[in-house]
Computed example of a mutant assay.
Amino acid sequence: MHRILAEHTVSMTELRKNPAQYFTDEPIAVLSNNKPAGYMLSASLFEAMIDLLEKQQANQQFTAKFRPTAEQLKAIALHGQALIEQATDEDLSEFSE
């Protein structure tokens, strides 16, 4: 049994069809072979999570090493969407269901 830390899930097959729709203000678990492979979330939610981690761990001197802006995250997401749309089944063979 695998731990899924989201109320909603999407398969890799469905994700490939329109990845941008899964960048929401709630995490969405991405499943590969019915196992969580990762999570999709909006830039604002990701930023809020990093801010919360930094506040909670201020005494431990935690600093996020990956701090892109919302614009950079959008560009990364669009680039990822383009790569997924252009990928062949062979390219994505390790993510088959």
Rank of each mutant, 00 (worst) to 15 (best):
E71Y: 04
A48K: 15
P68D: 01
K55R: 15
L45Y: 11
L52W: 07
L52K: 13
K55I: 02
L53M: 14
L45V: 07
K55T: 03
Q56E: 13
Q57T: 01
A70W: 00
M49V: 02
T69E: 05
L45A: 11
Q61A: 07
L52H: 12
E47Y: 06
K55D: 09
L53A: 14
A58N: 02
D51A: 12
L73M: 15
N59H: 11
L52E: 12
Q72F: 03
F46I: 02
Q72A: 14
Q60E: 10
R67S: 08
M49I: 08
E54K: 11
E54Y: 07
E54F: 12
Q57L: 14
F66M: 08
I50D: 10
F46G: 01
Q60C: 00
T63L: 08
F62T: 01
S44D: 12
A64D: 10
A70F: 04
L73D: 03
Q60A: 04
A70I: 13
A58T: 02
I50K: 13
L52C: 03
Q60L: 04
F46E: 07
Q57C: 05
A70Q: 12
E71I: 05
E47T: 09
Q57G: 04
L52V: 00
F66I: 09
F66R: 09
Q61V: 02
R67A: 02
T69K: 06
F66Y: 15
A48F: 01
A64L: 08
K65G: 11
L45R: 15
K65V: 05
Q56M: 10
